[in-house]
Design a protein around this nucleic acid. Structure first.
Lengths: 214, 214
DNA sequence: TGTACATCAGTGAACGCGCGTTCACTGATGTAC
DNA sequence: TGTACATCAGTGAACGCGCGTTCACTGATGTAC
């Protein structure tokens, strides 16, 4: 990929823009889908900066090197753009949990829980965005979307508790596990718990015998 | 208290304003301290409406029947006003936990945890505000402010675990307990868990044997 | 009791801000004949 | 190969919005003599 400058594109931030496009597509603008991806990539980058808690549509467009109105070719409005970012974030979180938990069993389940907390601390703004823009309404007898954090939890709990457990008990176990890691994440992010202390205790707080899954 | 109207006070909302002042003090404006209290009361009322997630200084002033600038006689800026509301909310939460947990022991501790979740669900906007504006940075070897949720938890955990437990273990136990109830609250508020399902399971998820306090 | 004065909690007008969104448009691309 | 035309992803100007905060002010209260 080559970095390019265009007359019809804001150049102010192009020099430091990670989402530059190649000459061919640049000459005639983005292919459809290209700008969509570029906007999402910029959004993810801005969320990493993390002080970008109040991420705006205009800022995403500006940083992508495109006018604010161009966004409306790809997303009906701001909330849909943010939802797309949230969905990407949720997938990433689910993936990291899966990676951490692949050893299986109670230890694998605990590891995936720790991964959840580490993800939150490493991506504070994205983590918050996920839960602001992704209502999933997991209820008893309802499965969470595949790959999501809720889905990982249900799978893990079912595995650890074994086939003898009732569906109700499994659901309660899942809520306990999810609540534990989600609460710990939020409390550290919201500075209720001193960050250094919290981080050093993650392994103790989230372990294979932290909660009663019965 | 009588409801009054004044030439030098916005009258638009006075008719439905709960925070009206008596004639004597109204004639010469609020006594110092009166308006402060009235602003806080209005803030609490607006937080109950709960769609008031983006509570503004101007709205609080407007609803109190006073100009926006009057607020600056009592609070240096908006964030101090919101912090005061958060502190009030935290005290209320701590009080409800104390009431629920006064039977003592493991059952009392569980009850105070359930009270935490019920408070969150009954006061969503206030609950969020508390954790947006009240960094308390509780660390190991640091006590939380008396009456706060963290303080209630430390006390409860210490009582349940008994004098034999080390301070470190107590702290881990406290983090588990707090994380459990905080996470459950947030997940329901953020619609990750279907509200009806979540509410019906609070007693099962938060019980005397939910977590390992060892 | 009357008068001069300091105090200070209020006032309304005004500021600059960045935001999400709408609008009519432009100009390059691809296609039909 | 050339020409006419539809498509459509971009553009910049403009909109109204409510916000937090600053400013110079007013007018009632309390106090000193």
């Amino acid at each position: 990929l080559l970095e390019v400058r265009l007359g019809n594109v804001y150049t102010g931030n192009m020099a430091t823009n990670d989402n530059s496009v190649n000459i061919e597509s640049a000459k005639r603008g983005y292919h459809h889908g290209d700008l969509r991806s570029a906007l999402l990539a910029t959004g993810m980058r801005l969320l990493e900066a993390s002080d970008a808690e109040h991420l705006s549509l205009r800022e995403i467009a500006r940083e992508t090197g495109v006018s604010a109105t161009a966004v409306y070719r790809h997303f009906p409005d701001k909330s849909v753009l943010l939802s797309a970012l949230a969905a990407e974030g949720m997938a990433k979180l689910g993936q990291e949990q899966a990676d951490a938990g692949k050893i299986g069993g109670a230890e694998g389940f605990a590891a995936s829980g720790r991964a959840y907390v580490h993800f939150a601390l490493a991506n504070p703004a994205l983590f918050r965005l996920i839960f602001s823009y992704m209502p999933s309404d997991v209820g008893i007898d309802h499965r969470a979307p595949e790959g999501s954090a809720g889905w990982m939890l249900q799978k893990g709990v079912a595995e650890v508790m074994g086939p003898a457990a009732t569906s109700d008990n499994q659901f309660v176990g899942m809520l306990r596990a999810w609540s534990l890691v989600h609460g710990l994440s939020m409390l550290i992010l919201d500075k209720q718990i001193d960050q250094a202390t919290g981080v050093s205790l993650i392994d103790h707080v989230v372990s294979a015998d932290s909660i009663n899954l019965g």
